[in-house]
Design a protein around this nucleic acid. Structure first.
Length: 395
DNA sequence: CTGGGGAAGGGGCCC
DNA sequence: GGGGCCCCTTCCCCA
């Protein structure tokens, strides 16, 4: 626009200048144009974004926004500044050694604990997700765009590959709930009709492969490093264990092991009733009791409190919940498909090893049970199957 | 469009 | 170190 119109609107007298930003800033942008790498730091991001705005480089603006957003997320998440690393060195936008040492010095107390081996740019895993949760994926995604050959991308691809969205054992952190809840139950219901022996075999094979990949991932993990969180009143250092994937630190190694599952996507605890998988046994138990055992003594319709005697158990596919007598009568049997009504003593779908459907199936298994039937129903027992990829023996 | 509720995920910590 | 409980947050569905 500058060259075709000129700032004064007279094409013959174009005099475009870039006085609004420094040569250093323009160097950053020019490097980005040629290399795809945007060397952002906490010191230049504002000016780079300003220059990008002037130059109408929306992609650069977006990268700057993400960088700033990342900085803000870090500030919120890691209020304990000694556990936080400097922004510029963690962000995968930067391409070279640049002012790393400067960053170290300027961040001062913020970079007390991170061991250098973990927080250098050469360590791909330490860069890949420093914000945790959604934020870290944002950065990884941004890094992918910005620097396709960066080590961070190598790991992002590795994790993405590990967390095959089609694989129930390994799911992308954060994606499970989207898949599971964005109509997940209903989708599962429709998909279940396609289940077959071949698919089961494929799933088994995929699980084996993914388990091997998880093992590889664990095997290539940087060493778990204890970092000094702070000092107690006796000036003794308080050690914490730092996640090699993000900035999270925990007091115990066992907690770190648990935390790592949110990075690896490992879900060793499958629900026998619906095949949904969980990272923790307690989550599986909670899910099973809530969804498949109707343990909540609350009427699903009117939310009133019921007892085990007054709360009739309604089965919908593998899902069970309770309804009070009044609501049962209000709903009436007419609203329940007659062809799927089952006598209380019939085996519910839960017991038949139905693959994942809950509600929404065209042939819903509706039934109303007395509470005693639930108690006697072997399907109400939580059966946890052992999985190959876990050392934990489940009972 | 919005707020409430349910379900799930994750962290801290006790046993 | 594992199991489990409690709590909080996030996301999705639904009225």
């Amino acid at each position: 626009m500058l060259l075709t119109q000129g700032p004064d609107g007279l094409p013959d007298t174009v005099n475009a200048t870039f006085d609004v930003f420094s040569p250093e800033t323009f160097t950053v942008i020019l490097d980005f144009i040629y290399s795809g790498q945007l060397d952002l730091s906490s010191h230049n991001v504002i000016e780079v974004m300003s220059a990008a705005s002037y130059l109408q480089m929306n992609s650069v603006i977006n990268y700057c926004k993400n960088f700033i957003k990342s900085s803000l997320d870090i500030s919120v998440k890691d209020e304990d500044s000694d556990r936080c690393l400097s922004l510029s060195e963690t962000c995968s936008f930067t391409s070279g050694a640049g002012d790393e040492s400067t960053e170290h010095q300027q961040q001062g107390p913020r970079s007390v604990s991170p061991p250098p081996a973990l927080w250098t740019r050469d360590n791909s895993r330490s860069q890949s997700g420093f914000m945790g949760k959604d934020g870290e994926q944002d950065v990884s995604a941004s890094a992918l765009k910005t620097n396709p050959s960066s080590p961070a991308n190598e790991f992002s691809a590795e994790v993405d590959d590990l967390q095959d969205p089609q694989d129930p054992l390994y799911t992308l952190p954060g994606s499970e709930r989207r898949r599971g809840r964005a109509g997940g139950n209903k989708r599962r219901a429709s998909n279940s009709t396609r289940s077959s022996q071949h698919e089961d075999l494929d799933i088994q094979e995929a699980r084996t492969q993914k388990a091997e990949k998880a093992e590889e991932l664990y095997a290539t993990l940087p060493p778990i490093v204890g970092v000094i969180s702070h000092f107690n009143k006796d000036s003794n250092p308080i050690m914490r264990f730092k996640c090699p994937f993000c900035t999270h630190t925990v007091k115990r190694k066992a907690d770190l092991k648990r935390h790592l599952r949110c990075h690896t996507g490992e879900r060793p605890y499958p629900c026998q009733a619906c095949n949904k998988r969980f990272t923790r046994l307690e989550h599986l138990r909670s899910h099973f009791e809530t969804i498949h055992q109707a343990r909540k003594l609350v009427c699903r319709k009117c939310k009133c409190q019921v007892t085990e005697e007054t709360g009739h158990v309604v089965c919908e596919g593998t899902r069970r919940y309770r309804m009070c007598t009044t609501c049962i009568q209000e709903v009436g049997c007419d609203d329940i498909p007659m062809d799927s009504l089952q006598a209380p003593n019939d085996e519910p779908a839960l017991l038949l090893g139905v693959d994942g459907e809950e509600e929404g199936d065209t042939k819903r298994n509706w039934m109303v049970n007395d509470d005693d039937d639930l108690a006697e129903d072997s399907g109400a027992d939580l059966i946890i199957q052992q999985v190959d990829d876990s050392d934990e023996e489940l009972s």
